[in-house]
Design a protein around this nucleic acid. Sequence first.
DNA 1: GATGAATGAGTCTTCATTCAT
DNA 2: CATGAATGAAGACTCATTCAT
Lengths: 200, 200, 200, 200
Amino acid sequence: MSRAVETKNNILEHAKRLYSQTGYFDTQISDIIREAKIGRGTVYQYFKNKEDIFLSLLEIFYKEWEQESSITPSLEELAAMTEKDYLNHRIQQTLAYFAKDTDRTNIILRISPGLGGDFESSIKKIEKRLTNIITNDLKFGIRNGHIDKETDLDFTANFIAGALFRVSYFYFARNKRQKAARDLDVIAKKVTALISSGIF
Amino acid sequence: MSRAVETKNNILEHAKRLYSQTGYFDTQISDIIREAKIGRGTVYQYFKNKEDIFLSLLEIFYKEWEQESSITPSLEELAAMTEKDYLNHRIQQTLAYFAKDTDRTNIILRISPGLGGDFESSIKKIEKRLTNIITNDLKFGIRNGHIDKETDLDFTANFIAGALFRVSYFYFARNKRQKAARDLDVIAKKVTALISSGIF
Amino acid sequence: MSRAVETKNNILEHAKRLYSQTGYFDTQISDIIREAKIGRGTVYQYFKNKEDIFLSLLEIFYKEWEQESSITPSLEELAAMTEKDYLNHRIQQTLAYFAKDTDRTNIILRISPGLGGDFESSIKKIEKRLTNIITNDLKFGIRNGHIDKETDLDFTANFIAGALFRVSYFYFARNKRQKAARDLDVIAKKVTALISSGIF
Amino acid sequence: MSRAVETKNNILEHAKRLYSQTGYFDTQISDIIREAKIGRGTVYQYFKNKEDIFLSLLEIFYKEWEQESSITPSLEELAAMTEKDYLNHRIQQTLAYFAKDTDRTNIILRISPGLGGDFESSIKKIEKRLTNIITNDLKFGIRNGHIDKETDLDFTANFIAGALFRVSYFYFARNKRQKAARDLDVIAKKVTALISSGIF
DNA sequence: GATGAATGAGTCTTCATTCAT
DNA sequence: CATGAATGAAGACTCATTCAT
């Protein structure tokens, strides 16, 4: 890795942690350069401004999602799965993403949503990407006859996304449980169960 | 209403709208006094500082919740309700709160959560108040034998809260549907159904 | 004069002197507020930025020219004047403008011309205003038969303007002669003579 | 030409164009290295700092003047010339210098004069050189009895210089006429005529 | 000789807050 | 009570210069 790439990553890493810990507005460029142990001007060699650092992070988060969720079951595996297994797989995948990086999760689910301005579109892009998957899976379920035809897709997708996001945030970002990774299975099962059959 | 109270309310009203529209940090005192058509110094007659205005709003939102959700069914009515009716009633109450005031909803569900600092505790107070009710209702359901004893209360409460919050935000704050109030019934039923029996 | 107007004028006055003494780029906002004995923020209550202060000055200089050169001879007086007297009057008027305010002259003739950017158009507006007058007077002379019909107006106007500006700059801005006012007459006569009949 | 000299000239060339186009302060080292297609550090192998590049240019301009105006008429030729022919020759020489290099002219006549600081003395050196010639020629004319003994040398030199500079700037730098070179003769004649016999 | 990543002193600009009227 | 002119601490950003490779 070249020196330049190393420096850029170093900035992004520390910025991510700081944005997560103290929010976008309360994080100063001074904090970032102090933590990253670099000069003030160095930041501006790699990023247009403070906002650009944040948007770059969101962009990276988006790409990471594409990568980390790209391993889909083969058609064979798919055929062997029950509807509930499939649901469980999808949920586990999403939870895994949020469980993997505490700061990333905190930024996506807590820090960015209320920022407004130029961040709005970036965070909505991520949110849309995540809810789209749910919508598609619901459609799939409807085609297979496992889900009621009359289901309000938009509504249900948001319902599931909301539940999933809050659970992720509380288990992985807020409490920063070390054992989160281990729990993934258990949590995924609980979510699956609730979504499948409700509380009664 | 005295002149003083009028002025204070005037400030709060415009601050609420502005905070909702452009966020806490991007809303300037200058914006507030321009919109409220008052002098710069006047703000500081009623509020210690910019943060105090925001915290006052959150405090008000908290009290409004107490009031707007205070009408609980009598013991008699309760006895006549099915478990699902009760759930539906609760959900409708919550949705009604979020449906009533777009800006309030936006601030509670979108603007405040990521602010950090002194706002953290205030917004958590509101969030806790809302999830507590769900937890209590779940406990009630368990006692009555309608809900499985082994249910993870904390987890389930967060699951339901997340779903409820996101649905509220999307239907009442984001889309600002005029027909929201009319839809309340329908949406509440959908939420109830999903929570009760899941998607399958 | 209201407090606000007083403060604004105070800023402009000190800015004018500083821009004249050290140039636009070498004059810092810090210099201006130190000299004007005001707070840093005060500058920005009255001017958008550093550039705006400078452009405001140029705007004022332009208006001052309009005023200070507005006293034109009556038709009667005009009729009684020889062509050379008229020329002399015009030149004296221009010299008077440049003699009146050393810093203003320095800014118009020395500081602004090379600034480029947004200043370009402002300074050209002033220059154009000054050369236009010369051009018009030349036309007048041609109509009256005192000046050769074939005279290249554009060229001659620039020739005269250049001579006039440099003489003004050297006598009034550069040397900051106290006796400048007294000399006005003499200098005007010399200029008139040279323009009228040349050096031979 | 050695590699080193080539690189240095390359820098000076692009710097000249950029200084002329956007001024000294608005031209960044970054602009120069981008245009000259060299590395950032290379500049500092040849010049102490940004100021040094500019001063080097002025130094070069001064030397170029010495060279380009060095071809003086022989004593024989001089004897055969009328006073006016001599004047015309001198003016043509000056105009030729300014007509030859648009950017050079712009820097000498427009960019440098207002810079102040360390540039002041350099640009005055050039200006002085140019006005000195005029003064000397005037003295020569007085000695020969063609010019009035009482003529204010300083004043007249500045008058002529101002006229000459502005005309040069407008014909050669501002309008960037392609046909400038061809016009040289005509313009020189016009200047000579005006200086000799005035407008009436 | 050439390079370009790193630097930080220097400036502008913002904006919440104060206070005399 | 209301005002708005004045304030200055705080922070973002620039850009000439350095230096290890």
